[in-house]
Design a protein around this nucleic acid. Sequence first.
DNA 1: CTGAAAGCGCTAACAC
DNA 2: GTGTTAGCGCTTTCAG
Lengths: 331, 331
Amino acid sequence: MKRVTIYDVAREANVSLATVSRVINGSDVVKEATRNKVQDAITKLGYKPNAIAQGLALQRTTTIGLIIPEASFTYIGQIINGLLDVAKIYNYNVMLHTITEGITDAEKIVDVIIKSRVDGVIVYSDKMMEDSITTLNSYNIPIVMIANKASGESLCSVYIDIAKAIRELCNRYIGYGVTDIAVLEDRKNRNSSRLMAHGAKQAFEANGLSWNNYIEIPNEYRSTYRFVRKYFEDHRHGLVIAYRDSQAMAVLNSARENGIAVPDDMEVVCFVDTKYNSAVRPMISSFSIPSYDLGAVSMRVMTKMLENDRVTDKEKCLSYLYTARQTTKHH
Amino acid sequence: MKRVTIYDVAREANVSLATVSRVINGSDVVKEATRNKVQDAITKLGYKPNAIAQGLALQRTTTIGLIIPEASFTYIGQIINGLLDVAKIYNYNVMLHTITEGITDAEKIVDVIIKSRVDGVIVYSDKMMEDSITTLNSYNIPIVMIANKASGESLCSVYIDIAKAIRELCNRYIGYGVTDIAVLEDRKNRNSSRLMAHGAKQAFEANGLSWNNYIEIPNEYRSTYRFVRKYFEDHRHGLVIAYRDSQAMAVLNSARENGIAVPDDMEVVCFVDTKYNSAVRPMISSFSIPSYDLGAVSMRVMTKMLENDRVTDKEKCLSYLYTARQTTKHH
DNA sequence: CTGAAAGCGCTAACAC
DNA sequence: GTGTTAGCGCTTTCAG
């Protein structure tokens, strides 16, 4: 099929291209009869407006850029689902970029994004990426950050108060008399892990106790499992808190393989919830982080920013629930 | 920062915009001195070429559309990773679209894609989506299909021979004397499930046996687990083959909860491999489907098509490996 | 209610 | 080597 443009439609319908433009944009000033003529021509020719040309003329592309770390975490899939569902409603397209560790990569991606003239960018990242934000900002590109609390001129965020969640959890456990609580570092989510540790510390200090049970994974260990498998040979805790499902599974398996009964001798809680927490046995207790909502809400916030609605609440804190399952005995 | 265009750079550098264009496109006819002048102007003004305008002028957007079902399956994350890594190398952008069940949705997405003037589209889907292919084709948009075997004028595919994999597996098991082999339907991957069933049937028939152990999940069951939990109350099999990791886990758990020992009384094999197969206990035997490669290869094929390199092999069949783990006793 | 014409920012002949 | 100019396909005043 030959490329058909607005001119072809105009000729076919015997009107000017301005009229065709009005029709495809739903302007209500066009007479019923002409509108029909144009519509017929459009369907006859199979005309589809060229979004690129529209983008150039309008200075907006109705596409937003999405930056995520490698796409393979289950909960990121959820975030994407939520985000795309909302994008679909508002007729936005989404351009996907993954960002691997290393600053040089971030720069290149920001460069590509600016060139692509997206209307805004949503970034999910464990860390803040100050530089990227600054650059994007200097090109007047609105930003929504997922997972990190921050705000500014055309910068909003949607996040979860990790520290608070863990603080509350620890508080409860301290109340149960469990004071040997450890937080396991997630190397791929170092910042979030630190927030978890921070929350634990706060809880202990609020109870007049000190805390330093942050389990950092040495670099020489290729996988979390390898490390914890060894770690639990001579360590015991009342409660171990992990970030991702796979980390919690590593803890669970390696503890048991070292003769530690879960939840009897040791309890395990995972922060990010995915279906896998309920798919394993014992089912892993976890917070139910609304990953889907994280995506959906940030996309909605983005559309608000783009439509120049006043965004009243630039830092949106989403709530979480704690779901006790089979890896804990205190409820 | 004010919008800076190629004109601004030209003025700043005291050259014509054609020269600036040559510089940003790396044309080698520009004199060293002028090139530097231009480069300086570019960095001074923070100029970034407008990809939209380029797209309009060149009739190509260097972005490709990606269609996937809901993004939450782990292996789809892998596919995306592979795809984006290769896209990055070739400087292509990727526009992401999810397609939920229901034809009307597919039509709308195809519409959006055509309007967005992507250079090509890669689609991962359990089923063929004939209509979409036809439409896309009529607009001269090259297509790469992942997971389904097909080819045509500007249509390539990258897939895995599921039937063959299962046929071979069944053949081996028949050899071991295990003839009670069942294939569990995956409602979200019905086609792939049918291919598995097909492979099983072939194996049995080749051995002079008949086969009808395709376990279909009735619609009234909300989850696979609910169903199999009941199913295994009064069913037993020598080997059960499931498609996704979570399906295999459902089988594994519900079998055990009904007093069936795995792998002693019953073996379980999963088709698609993800890290979760090795993260649960017992670890689930599975094929290792190269999900990352599925994405990477299809993106590479796409670039080939777009660069008009002769694509010699329009139907690329990727190989798989079988990895026996703890849910099987025959190796 | 409809048409004419001037951009939007860039590329690619074609001159010089 | 570099500049001029005519598009690429669409939107949007401004007239009529």
